[in-house]
Amino acid sequence: MSPLAYGVLRQVTPTAAVLLAENPGVMTLDGTNTWVLRAPGSASCVVVDPGPADAAHLARLAAQAPVEVVLLTHGHPDHSEGAREFGRQVDAPVRSVDPAFRLGGLGLDEGDVIEAAGLSIRVLPTPGHTADSVCFQLDDAVLTGDTVLGRGTTVVAHPDGRLGDYLASLRLLAALPAGTVGLPGHGPELPDLVAAANGYLAHREQRLAQVKAAVAELGGAPTARQVVERVYADVDRSLWEPAEWSVRAQLEYLRDA
């Protein structure tokens, strides 16, 4: 995505537009995708993942008011840091799985359907990246947060994230109708979320086999860093620290298998 996309609300589907936060980085790719949802003709909207506490970004979002509700896919700061302040600015409740990020008291639970801005938004519990991760299902797309990214793969943020949970969440997304559009928390939209989720599952199975082989070769109880040095030798070292989180999750998964 071009840097020229910063500050511009871009319509992606008939009901979803994206405003890219200017917080690019190793973990955030081009930046955080803040999604603005509304049915065609609706005066109000729903905002998903307001992103960092960036005054300019939040002001651009506030220009989309009235906002009926703010939703969080999970509590990592690049998605949630600005949420409560934004909710106050536009006088809208903030709903999340984790009570720490809520404004107005309501949470998010499996099977919840949020009726707002002319839309029915279904909550899909998808823990794994973090314990509090959820996706949001619209008629024409699914907002995936960091469960599935628009480019590359995501991290299982151990110890909060657990690999067994993550694999189950990927299988849930892989079982959606073929051609479901994915609207991720980072990176470009995915024309076929089911294909992306199946690709993620294959990648995780491959990595898990590599980790298992590395443990056998190293012997004893190798550290996560020792495993990373073998399995992720071809990966940029700037990614080794988050890779360690995933390896710890994989080692725990193998111990519990």
Rank of each mutant, 00 (worst) to 15 (best):
V8C: 11
R10K: 09
Q11L: 07
V12Y: 05
T15M: 02
A16V: 02
N23A: 05
V26L: 15
M27F: 13
T28P: 03
D30E: 15
G31W: 08
T34S: 15
W35M: 06
R38E: 10
A39G: 05
A39P: 04
G41N: 10
S42F: 04
S44E: 11
V47C: 09
V47D: 08
P50G: 01
A53I: 02
A56C: 07
A59T: 12
A59Q: 15
A63E: 15
Q64K: 04
E68R: 05
V69E: 12
V69S: 08
V70I: 13
H79W: 00
E81A: 14
G82D: 06
A83S: 10
E85I: 02
E85V: 05
G87Q: 01
V94Q: 11
D98G: 00
D98R: 09
R102G: 06
L106S: 12
G107S: 00
D109A: 15
V113M: 08
I114M: 09
A116V: 06
A117P: 08
I121K: 09
I121L: 12
G128Q: 05
G128I: 05
H129T: 11
A131V: 07
D132L: 02
Q137T: 00
Q137C: 00
L138P: 06
D140K: 04
V142C: 03
R151P: 04
G152S: 04
V156N: 09
H158C: 02
R162S: 01
R162I: 01
L163D: 05
L167Q: 11
L172E: 13
A175D: 15
P177H: 03
P177M: 10
A178H: 11
G179V: 11
T180P: 11
G182A: 04
L183C: 01
L183N: 08
G187Y: 04
G199D: 15
L201I: 12
E205I: 01
Q206G: 10
Q206W: 13
V211F: 04
P222M: 01
A224R: 09
R225F: 08
Y232F: 14
V235P: 11
R237T: 13
V247M: 11
Q250H: 07
Y253H: 14
D256M: 12
